[in-house]
Design a binder for these strands. Structure first.
Lengths: 143, 143
DNA sequence: AGTTAGTCAACAATACTTGTTAGTTGACAG
DNA sequence: CTGTCAACTAACAAGTATTGTTGACTAACT
C-alpha cells in the first residue's frame, strides 16, 4: 500500500474524508508485515485512540481492500488477515504458532494448458506450511 | 481415501462401529472430486437416509480427517470443503462460480534456504485462481 | 458556518461449526 | 441371542468472525 500521506491524498481526491480513525488505521498498517487480523489492528489503533470501534476498523479495512491498497489473506481457519504488501509474493504459515511470513519463492509454476483446456489462470498462489525458525528450535530442543 | 469396504474394515479394526450413517458418508465421498461441503454431503446421504442429522455428518467427516482418510480444504471465505483425494495435487478455484478443481501443476518450487534460514517446509500448496472453462465461456460470450 | 460523511454505541443477524443434554437405537462381542 | 455401550437423533446453546442497522452526535471539508 501507499504511505499514509499518499493515502490521505488519495482519499481526499476521492471525496472521502480523512478522519483520525482512518489515519490511525493507515499508520497501523504502514510497514507491517505480520499480516494482522482486524482485531490486532484495532488493538494498535486504540493505543492512541481508545474510543475507536472495531466496526469502524473493519469499515476502513474493507475500504482499503476495495481501493486495492491492501490484500486480504485467508489461510486455514483463522480470521481474515490483512496484508499491506500488494507486490507479488508468497506466504509461509507456521503450523505451530500460526504466524504468516512473507516469502519470495523460487518457483516455476505452470498449469499445463493441454490437460486443462479453457482454464484461465489469473493468479497463482504459493503457500508453504511447516515450522518457522522459532518453533523449529523449540521442537528440536524438546528432544 | 480408501474404498468404502476398506474403510469399513479399518473402522472395525479400530473398534469403531460401522453404522449406516458412517457408510452413507463413505459412499457419498467415494470418487467425489468436487470438494463438497459438509452440507452437500449431508444432502447426498439424506437421499437414501432421510433422517441422518447434519451433526452426525460433521462428526464422521471429522473422524475421517483425524484418521487421515480425507483432507480439509479451506480456500477463500467459503465453508470448509472435504477432499477424499489425499495424493499430492493442486487446486484451481474459479473466481466466478467458486468451484474447486483438482489439478496437477508443473511446478518447481523452492523456498531459498539462504534467505529463509531455519524455516522447515513440510508442505507446499499451489492454488490457481481464475475462470473455469464454463465461466470463461460465459464471460467471453458477454462481449 | 453549514452540510453531510463518518463515527459511535448497542444491538441484531448471518453463516458455519462445535458443544451439550437426554433419550433411543442398534452394532458387535461373548 | 442377548447385553452393553458406542453412536445417533433432536433440539438447543454457544462461539467465532463479520456485516447490517439505527439514531444520535461530531467534525471534515466546501
Amino acid at each position: 500500500m501507499r504511505a499514509p500521506e499518499e493515502l490521505t491524498e488519495r482519499f481526499r481526491n476521492l471525496g472521502l474524508k480523512v478522519t483520525p480513525q482512518r489515519q490511525g488505521v493507515f499508520q497501523a498498517l504502514w510497514g507491517d508485515d505480520s499480516h494482522p487480523t482486524a482485531e490486532a489492528i484495532w488493538g494498535r489503533v486504540r493505543e492512541t485512540m481508545p474510543t475507536v470501534s472495531l466496526r469502524t476498523v473493519y469499515q476502513v479495512l474493507n475500504d482499503l481492500t476495495d481501493l486495492g491498497e491492501i490484500n486480504t489473506v485467508r489461510l486455514g481457519s483463522s480470521p481474515v488477515r490483512f496484508d499491506p504488501n500488494i507486490d507479488g509474493h508468497d506466504h509461509f504459515v507456521c503450523e505451530q504458532c500460526s504466524r504468516v511470513f512473507d516469502v519470495h519463492a523460487h518457483a516455476v509454476v505452470d498449469l499445463p494448458e493441454k490437460h486443462y483446456p479453457g482454464f484461465e489462470v489469473a493468479a497463482t498462489q504459493i503457500v508453504f506450511r511447516g515450522f518457522c525458525p522459532d518453533c523449529a528450535r523449540i521442537s528440536a530442543a524438546a528432544h
